[in-house]
Design a protein around this nucleic acid. Structure first.
Lengths: 213, 213
DNA sequence: TTCACCTAAACGAACGTTCAATAGGGAAAA
DNA sequence: TTTTCCCTATTGAACGTTCGTTTAGGTGAA
């Protein structure tokens, strides 16, 4: 048994640093708008040194995607194994899912860009590593809690609501909404309440007590 | 009084053709991934001819944005002036909003890209011309129909749900969902039912009769 | 004649990428 | 211990291509 658990990606510290910085740049500006020279400059290397670690720009981009996406949903297992009620599990799962996006901007940006420009293989990676695990668990809990409705379409709606919320963020700042001032943790809980209301099919008073987004 | 109503953009047919083709390319590949030579080739001109009509690439891109976004939400006036009940108005408004995205892929792609890369001025354009008009009307109707809840946060959630649904589309094809086969008009109504259920705070049986997405 | 519209050709800059050369550090040989 | 060797990591420089853009000149309708 090896000391380290992560044996799948044998990343040297240097490679890890490259991928972290590359992921940030690709997330902020998009694939086509980032040059190898800029990546080299940010990682304090020459372009030629970059090519020693990765065959070309696309390989570097894909490695950065893997670095950010792989095992992103692995923490789900913790949430589903507990002794809590299904209702509590769903609540925790939704909150965990929301924090996945709200607390990792680079991850969220890369995901949004991949949804626009990802080819079939990359969309499959995204589905398998990020979306599907929480989706299946949400669907399972809905089947238990709200059996008279279609769990699949309801789970899709829940994911859409969460994703759409973060997609809409840049516009919310222009809609004269008093949300921005609220602490992040309150915004997370408010969104979680809305998602739960959508699933349970009843208005939760919590959205009132917690205020708007 | 001129014959034509649209006096704001005095677009020649040639310019209109340029903008239509440019909007398609920018929507499909993104600003940085489209070259002036490609735009010239698609419009059957030389690059230099393109520069006769637009000062530079950014001006052309912004003009294409204006062409696609401007007055996109003007049809709302028709929906709000009628004699129908507020409930019917809301229903029609939601359906109209959904069709805005589902029946104009170029518009939807440009909007999603602008939400990622748009600067402050462009986000404001997007807000003013596209998002805010239906948003305010949805908010107003919610205030009438569900007065005990926060209209603003509920309207935001409705918009998020719709936008997120189309953002999630590429992944739905990988989630083994039986939705894709359904006619577009049924998908539109199913989504509309979900949005109304979110607003009215009750599960609508319609999502069952119409099936999943 | 004029002027909007177009062309061919080229500009310098930036792009992705390659290559020969070299520095550095640990293992192997002396 | 010292020397040799080797391999990884890195460099400066350059390759050819494509980029956004400009220039000088042409064409055809009013």
């Amino acid at each position: 048994m090896p000391d380290s658990i992560a044996i799948s990606p044998p990343l040297t510290p240097k490679k890890e640093e490259i991928l972290t910085i590359s992921a940030r740049l690709f997330a902020q500006k998009g694939y086509a708008a980032v040059s190898m020279r800029e990546l080299a400059s940010e990682t304090k290397m020459t372009p030629a040194a970059l090519y020693h670690h990765y065959a070309d720009k696309e390989a570097l981009y894909y490695a950065a995607l893997l670095h950010v996406f792989t095992d992103k949903a692995s923490a789900i297992i913790e949430l589903t194994k507990g002794r809590e009620s299904s209702e509590t599990k769903l609540k925790n799962l939704i909150l965990w899912l929301i924090r996945l996006f709200s607390r990792d901007e680079i991850f969220t940006l890369l995901l949004q860009r991949e949804l626009l420009d990802g080819n079939s293989a990359r969309i499959k990676l995204l589905t398998r590593e990020v979306i599907e695990p929480p989706f299946l668990e949400v669907e399972r809990l809905i089947g238990k809690l709200v059996p008279n409705r279609n769990p699949k379409s309801l789970a899709v709606s829940a994911m859409s609501l969460i994703l759409g919320h973060f997609q809409l963020m840049p516009i919310l700042r222009n809609l004269t909404i008093e949300h921005s001032s609220a602490p992040i943790i309150d915004q997370e809980h408010a969104l979680a309440d809305t998602v739960r209301a959508l699933i349970m099919g009843q208005s939760s008073k919590a959205t009132e007590t917690r205020g708007a987004f």
